[in-house]
Design a protein around this nucleic acid. Structure first.
Lengths: 216, 216
DNA sequence: TTCAAATATGAGTTTCTGTTCAGTATGATG
DNA sequence: CATCATACTGAACAGAAACTCATATTTGAA
């Protein structure tokens, strides 16, 4: 039932297509803002439409339900963040540093865009999409590190869940302004240590400057 | 406006008092079950009354609002768990072992009573009561360990939030049946390591048998 | 300019949930 | 047993939110 005009169309976007895209974008932006500010449940579809400066009925031209907006939002923003992360880690070899960068990158992203941060934190990390996208990537790193003999953990599954939870907790605290400047490195250091990197080295790795984004 | 018949009354509880207490207990049990199963918001007062096999109106004889039930539930169960924890740690001197015991005790509690576990996990660890009760206790341990030169962390606030988040993540995973047998020790080991305990020692401490509850 | 298709509008409808309350049943008391 | 107090009941009301749809507006092409 979806429309899906293929993006491979030759013709430049007609005005109607632009209009449609803009309205959709306004709705998404409004939803993102409101979800982040007040949480998912308390936000009504009226709120979203109102904040997007569009009529209530228009909402239903684009999304069937509130959950659908949420899914769309998540898909968009998560994919974006993951490619950014990849660009940052492209030239890094050491798995330990990769893990450190991943955690610090996400903390930085949350810090630069509080709205996105609150969205991520309030929307229950359990949310399938986050689970699949992030955790899969994190588990990949962890396995690689173990196979390379770089990490040493008692139970990889536990290590994965614990590190995810720790990241979530630190994000949340950072958003509430509870943490002082160096928190990203401090957190990364803790993660590396719990993965079995010796203390001095963990500290050193976690404090290396965060690589710039490499060209797309 | 509350009734608060003093418990110091000499007379044994009259039948009416028992009836009252039982209804209240049924409501609390129902709320606990439903909150754990479907979460707080989706649960309606009707649901609770229905599950407690009591009329809708009766709910309001005991609680003004849904939040009030939640508060009552939390107060009850958290206080109970904290005293249990104290009884377990009473004769332990080493701060590191105290921390290990705290984490493992809570994981054990969640494992023994899934309903309580889901309640704790679904109800957003941010919830003030949990925050104040648990985090305060955890921060106490952490400080003590640092002052004793036993722990070495880059940033205590970060360490606190990270460890709380990690515990939350592991609890959640355990409840979903994602973890295999030794997960409590594995988690405790990770926490100790991140607090700066050397690997071998962390492993040893985390694997010590959990002390029995000392007499009340 | 004209008209059909696409998009936007918002008042009206339905559904659901919280809350009240007048009436009923049960227990306590003398 | 008679009387009062306490606890229970569920129909009825109110408010809020989701969702529909007939109507109006804008767009694109003949």
């Amino acid at each position: 039932m979806h429309h899906h005009r293929m993006t491979t169309d030759e013709h430049p976007p007609t005005r109607n297509q632009r209009r449609r895209a803009e309205t959709r974008a306004r709705l998404l932006a409004a939803a993102r803002k409101l979800f982040a500010a007040q949480g998912f449940e308390p936000t009504t579809i009226r709120d979203i439409a109102g904040d997007a400066d569009t009529a209530l009925g228009s909402f239903y031209n684009y999304f069937r339900t509130k959950d659908e907006v949420l899914a769309a939002l998540m898909e968009e923003t998560l994919a974006e963040q993951l490619t950014l992360l990849e660009r940052r880690r492209r030239h890094v070899d050491d798995v330990a540093e990769c893990v450190s960068i991943a955690h610090r990158h996400l903390l930085a992203a949350v810090n630069e865009d509080n709205e996105w941060g609150w969205l991520l934190v309030r929307l229950d990390v359990t949310h399938e999409i986050i689970e699949h996208v992030f955790m899969a990537s994190a588990m990949g790193d962890l396995r690689k590190g173990i196979e390379a003999g770089r990490f040493d953990v008692a139970n990889p599954d536990v290590a994965l869940q614990a590190s995810g939870g720790a990241l979530h907790g630190v994000m949340h605290a950072a958003l509430r302004g509870l943490l002082s400047a160096d928190y990203d490195s401090a957190h990364a250091e803790g993660i590396l240590r719990s993965f079995g990197i010796a203390q001095a080295e963990a500290r050193e790795i976690a404090r290396r400057p965060l690589p710039e984004l490499s060209s797309p």
